[in-house]
């Protein structure tokens, strides 16, 4: 007998793309069809997985591809430590371990017909990219889509090709921005911090849904802007990126108050966050 909850699936890397310095996207295919079927029965946008390289370890990041694309799983991650370095060093044709999907999801079925505003900073775009594609892959189901995305510099913007695609679509209003000093001479987007850019773009908040993901400081200054624009706290969503090890609500690392971020989250509304001890996030 083995401990079933820690058994990983084997996944093969079929595509690797460098998005930004130290940021890479991998497209992974399940080696075993049964694992693929199991995954997509459960997977909803917002969930995460534990990606690993035996000998180096496992690391938790979101599933960046939508459940509408059932042939593969994509993840986008920044190399910061031992595990992410090992995953980054894997090449197309090689394998990684994967377990998941874990956690809750964005309740997108309750957003039908409503305007959706996506706000992301830097490496915060991957967790909501899956939602963006899920929404765009279902034309007619949702209201107008606005994407506000900023990064420190032009080089730090991830999914540059997709940003171009989204910018060209009539059903998407895309605002890209870089922090002051991060622009290049041919930069066509805005210059400024995300909360400021969002304030200027001023998407109407009443009845709309907002998803925010980015560094804690960005989220902190973005939330008041959203409230000013008329978004209701119960309609503002974010995903917490606490340190996680087990993913199954046991190791105690991701706890914020009595909340297990890995099981009760990672998706929370601003309403819920207000009832959690902020200092532990």
């Amino acid at each position: 007998m083995t401990i079933a909850i820690y058994q990983s699936a084997m996944m093969n890397i079929v595509l690797a793309r460098d998005e930004a310095p130290d940021v890479r996207t991998l497209r992974l295919q399940f080696a075993d069809e049964a694992d693929r079927v199991r995954f997509f029965q459960k997977y909803r946008v917002g969930m995460f997985g534990l990606y690993g390289v035996p000998g180096a370890g496992e690391s938790a990041f979101c599933v960046a591809s939508p459940p509408t694309r059932t042939g593969y799983v994509e993840c986008t991650f920044r190399r910061t430590g031992r595990v992410t370095a090992a995953i980054r060093d894997r090449e197309v044709g090689q394998a990684v371990t994967f377990r998941g999907p874990y956690g809750n999801s964005f309740p997108i079925e309750s957003w039908k017909g409503r305007a959706i505003v996506f706000i992301a900073g830097g490496i915060g775009l991957p967790p909501i990219r899956s939602v963006i594609w899920n929404v765009l892959d279902r034309p007619g189901d949702f209201g107008p889509v606005t994407i506000v995305y900023g990064a420190r510099t032009v080089a730090d913007l991830v999914y540059k090709d997709e940003l171009a695609d989204w910018g060209a679509r009539p059903d998407v209003k895309l605002v890209t921005a870089v922090d002051p000093g991060g622009e290049t001479p041919d930069w066509k987007g805005q210059v400024g911090f995300v909360p400021f850019v969002l304030d200027h773009a001023a998407p109407p908040g009443a009845g709309a849904v907002a998803l925010v993901c980015g560094p804690p400081i960005m989220i902190k200054f973005t939330l008041p802007v959203l409230l000013k624009l008329g978004f209701a706290p119960k309609d503002v969503y974010t995903t917490l990126e606490n340190r996680m090890k087990c993913g199954v609500g046991q190791c105690g690392r991701c706890n914020v108050g009595s909340t297990y971020v890995c099981r009760d989250g990672p998706v929370f509304t601003l309403d819920q966050l207000r009832h959690m001890p902020a200092a532990d996030m």
Binding site: Y6, G52, G55, G57, E58, V83, R243, C246, G252, R253
Partner: peptide, 30 residues
């Protein structure tokens, strides 16, 4: 009951370990 999960290994074998850990240590949530 808090624990850590760490990989260790040699050239020919890797093990994924569950080790005790605690919120009292500085690195726990780092």
């Amino acid at each position: 009951h808090c624990f850590d999960i760490q990989d260790e290994g040699t050239r020919s074998e890797a093990v994924r370990l569950r080790n005790w850990d605690t919120c009292g240590l500085a690195l726990f949530t780092q």
